[in-house]
Amino acid sequence: MLRDALLVAGKDLRIERRSRVTTNQVAPFAVVVLVLFAFALDPDRGLLTRAAAGLFWVAVLFCAILAVQRSFSVESADGARDGLRLSGLDPAGIFLGKAGAVALQLVALEALLAAGVVLLYGTDLRGGVVLLATCAAATIGLAASGTVYGVLSAGLRVRETLLPLLLLPVAAPVLLSATRAWEVALGTGGAGDGAGPWLRLLVIFAVVYVAFGVVAFGALLEEA
């Protein structure tokens, strides 16, 4: 399974490196989203700073949708999905490989977005451990859930519009938890019980979707 996952992730990342969709389209999109938020909330920079955590994770969520759509659009062209099904690869390995590739792209985009909130919103990125732990858990959760719903919508003609409709409500707990955890770390929200409960929720979400994907991806790939 791990060998298959590495093979699929390597293939997806090589396609991405060559097509440069993430670097030339998704990354500029992410920056534009941050800039638009700044326009919408300006001139009150205080509000921008307080809302930075939520705006960051909304932007990450939009980027995740684009990354997942791209991940499955390459399988839709010229019967590639049939090739993948005929390949003999373990479906769980395919799931982990595709989710892993999406997660790596999200990590790069999160780094860009983090730089963006520092420069555009004047946010001071304190609480590095919590920020990184939140990013890790939320990224895995978004990549796993996105891959599950990506394959569900992949075989449909309306996949471009269906995926956001499926994924956005499902990812709401990630958005909420990651935002709250970041607010605690940045000191821009109510401290409450700290970041712990939100981090636990993110980890649970990630574990549930990784486990579900490993078990169900084969059936979803067949039905799509």
Binding site: D4, L7, V74, D78, A80, D82, G83, L86, S87
Partner: peptide
Amino acid sequence: RRQVALLGHATQLYDDLTVAENVRFAVRA
């Protein structure tokens, strides 16, 4: 499926991989 090859109307290739990379991926899979 691992014992079968299907050459159909669609080529099942990845546009952004080279010829050699497509073949190598399929063989390793």
